[in-house]
Lab assay of single mutants.
Amino acid sequence: MQIFVKGLTGKTTTLEVEPSDTIENVKAKIQDKTGLPPDQQRLIFAGKQLEDGRTLSDYNIQKESTLHIVWR
């Protein structure tokens, strides 16, 4: 499925993911596209910070959802 990651600059990155992907895995995909290391990424969805060990489905993140990224 496709999801979007929007940064503070307003730039949006598209990712191809599975609902079973962990947040850690998603951060690795973001690094592949942007070069930003996972330890500098904070992902937010529906006002919650996403924890590395959880999956996208744990947070009810579905296709075409938009996550927000904040740099540490």
Rank of each mutant, 00 (worst) to 15 (best):
T12H: 08
V70K: 08
Q41M: 15
T55K: 13
D32N: 13
A46D: 13
G47R: 04
D52C: 04
K29M: 14
D52R: 03
L36H: 08
P19K: 06
H68N: 10
T22W: 04
N25Q: 11
K29L: 10
N60R: 06
T12P: 11
A46L: 11
L43E: 00
T66A: 04
I30R: 00
R42M: 15
I3N: 00
Q41D: 02
E16G: 05
G35A: 04
T66Y: 08
F45H: 07
G10L: 08
K63P: 14
V70R: 08
I44H: 10
N25H: 10
Q49L: 13
T14V: 13
E51G: 04
W71R: 12
I44Q: 07
Q2K: 12
H68L: 13
Y59I: 02
E24W: 13
P38L: 12
K11N: 11
K63T: 13
L36M: 15
D52W: 03
P38C: 05
P19A: 08
L50W: 01
D52P: 07
I23S: 02
E51R: 07
H68D: 10
S65E: 08
M1D: 02
K27M: 06
L15V: 08
L36Q: 05
A28G: 12
L56H: 00
V5Q: 01
P19Q: 08
R54W: 08
D21T: 10
R54C: 06
L8N: 08
T34Q: 04
G53A: 07
I69V: 13
P37I: 08
G7L: 14
T9N: 14
G35L: 04
D58H: 11
T9C: 08
L50G: 01
T22Y: 08
T55V: 07
D32A: 12
E16M: 13
N60E: 06
F45L: 04
L8R: 10
A28Q: 12
K6G: 04
L36E: 04
T14S: 10
K29T: 03
K27Y: 04
M1A: 02
T12E: 11
V17N: 00
S20T: 12
K27N: 02
A46S: 10
E51V: 07
E18H: 14
K63Y: 06
V26E: 00
I69Q: 05
E24T: 08
E16S: 15
A46N: 14
V5D: 01
T55R: 10
D52H: 06
L67K: 01
E24M: 14
T34A: 05
K48H: 12
T55I: 07
G10T: 08
E64V: 03
F45Y: 13
T12V: 12
G10V: 08
S65D: 13
S57W: 08
D32I: 14
K6E: 11
G10C: 06
G53L: 08
D52I: 05
L8F: 14
G10S: 08
E18Q: 13
T66F: 07
T13H: 14
R42H: 13
I69P: 01
I3Q: 01
E24H: 09
Q40F: 11
L15N: 01
I23F: 02
E18I: 11
E24F: 11
F45W: 10
L67N: 01
K11I: 14
T55P: 05
W71G: 11
I3R: 00
D39C: 07
T34H: 07
S20D: 12
Q41K: 06
R42E: 12
I61M: 04
Q31H: 15
D21W: 11
T55W: 03
I69E: 03
K11Q: 14
D52T: 05
I23K: 00
S65T: 10
Q62G: 13
Y59C: 02
L8C: 08
E64R: 09
E18S: 15
D21G: 02
E51P: 02
Q31T: 09
F45R: 02
S65L: 03
A46V: 07
S20Q: 09
K6I: 15
Y59M: 03
I44S: 11
T34N: 04
K6D: 06
D58W: 13
G10Y: 06
G47V: 02
G10Q: 07
E51A: 07
R54M: 12
M1N: 02
R42S: 14
K11G: 15
P38M: 15
P19S: 06
T22N: 04
V5I: 14
K11A: 13
T12S: 09
R72W: 10
G35Y: 03
V70A: 10
I44E: 12
L56A: 02
L50V: 03
T34R: 03
T22I: 04
T12M: 13
I69N: 06
L50M: 06
I3P: 01
E51N: 07
L15F: 06
L36D: 03
L67D: 00
Q2V: 15
R72Q: 15
V5E: 01
E18F: 12
E18T: 13
K63D: 14
F4C: 03
T66L: 12
M1L: 06
Q2M: 14
P19G: 09
E18C: 07
I61A: 01
Q62D: 09
L50R: 00
I44D: 04
I3S: 01
N25K: 14
I23W: 01
T9M: 11
